[in-house]
Amino acid sequence: MRRFWIFFILSCAILLLLGAISLCAGSEDIPPSEVFGALFGGASDETSRDIILEIRLPRLAAGVFCGMMLAGAGVAMQTLFKNPLADPSITGVSSGAALGAAIAISAGAAFAFSVQISALFFGLAATFAIWRLGRINGRLSAFSMLLAGIAINAFCGAMVGFFMYSVREAGVKGFVFWTLGSLENCSWREIFCAAALGLPAWILLMANSRGLNMMMLGSDGARLAGANVNFLQKLSIFCAAVMTAAAVAMCGIIGFVGLVVPHICRMLTSPDNRFLLPLSSAFGAALVVFADIAARLYSPLDTIPIGVITAILGAPFFMYLLRRNGNA
């Protein structure tokens, strides 16, 4: 409990600090006093105020939101599958969403939000398909769900490749955005829509975090101790899918956050989801904001996709996890 508060407050403090850096730094550096003025209605330059309120602040909010959602979904999946190497992509929502976006971009994205809506729809459809395939005799089997996830993810990946090849030059940048993620061009409207979807799912998951703890005992063990296993399985897959979909539909696929963050937080405190979920969410938000700052500072004019940065940070850690598990 004490460890949780120490690391939670620390994560929030780091997030605040990174948030401040994120608002100040960029292609044009804005001094903290002007940022403060723009945020709280003090004296500030008109251009600076526009940059902060219409570009950097929504970008920061999108980063915080994506980090929270992806890390939260990762917590739920790792607990449900009793596997520290599980991540939100197990639900197939990311690759499904990328396919949905690819189809919409290829079709010419006729109306506002059509790419996001298509991404959301295909993302949730992929989750539903994997969930159905993972059920054997009315019981969810982690193993068959993992296998179904591999199949669906591979199929969606191949289809995205197909569309990417078909549209050639014009749409390639859009595809890169979807498959590697970016916080660029997030509008307040998009952020509110995504938050309206993702935050209730996060709250629902938090409210059931005690039940989720029981899933660590396996489905029979959880049932014998009084948990409604069927409900908890459906709820955690649904919430994780909606949270990931909300993040992916807005910012594309940002990999490794949902895998690495819950694992680090579990090592720092305990596997108790009542504490792990808020801590991972704060830590995940800080990681995504950090990756975004790094992406922007590396090439101020043409930002490299944020998924590249999280993968560069996450992949070595993943290898470390594999070694550690192999040696244990």
Binding site: M216, L217, L224, G226, S270
Partner: peptide, 30 residues
């Protein structure tokens, strides 16, 4: 219901699938 049954009967199963780095107290508190 599972909840009603759990209040009046406890089971020590043959195997336990729990494999998380939790404290013994937290495990028992489940």
């Amino acid at each position: 219901s599972d909840m009603e049954a759990a209040k009046i009967r406890a089971v020590l199963a043959q195997d336990c699938e729990f494999n998380f780095e939790s404290s013994v107290l937290d495990f028992v508190l489940l």
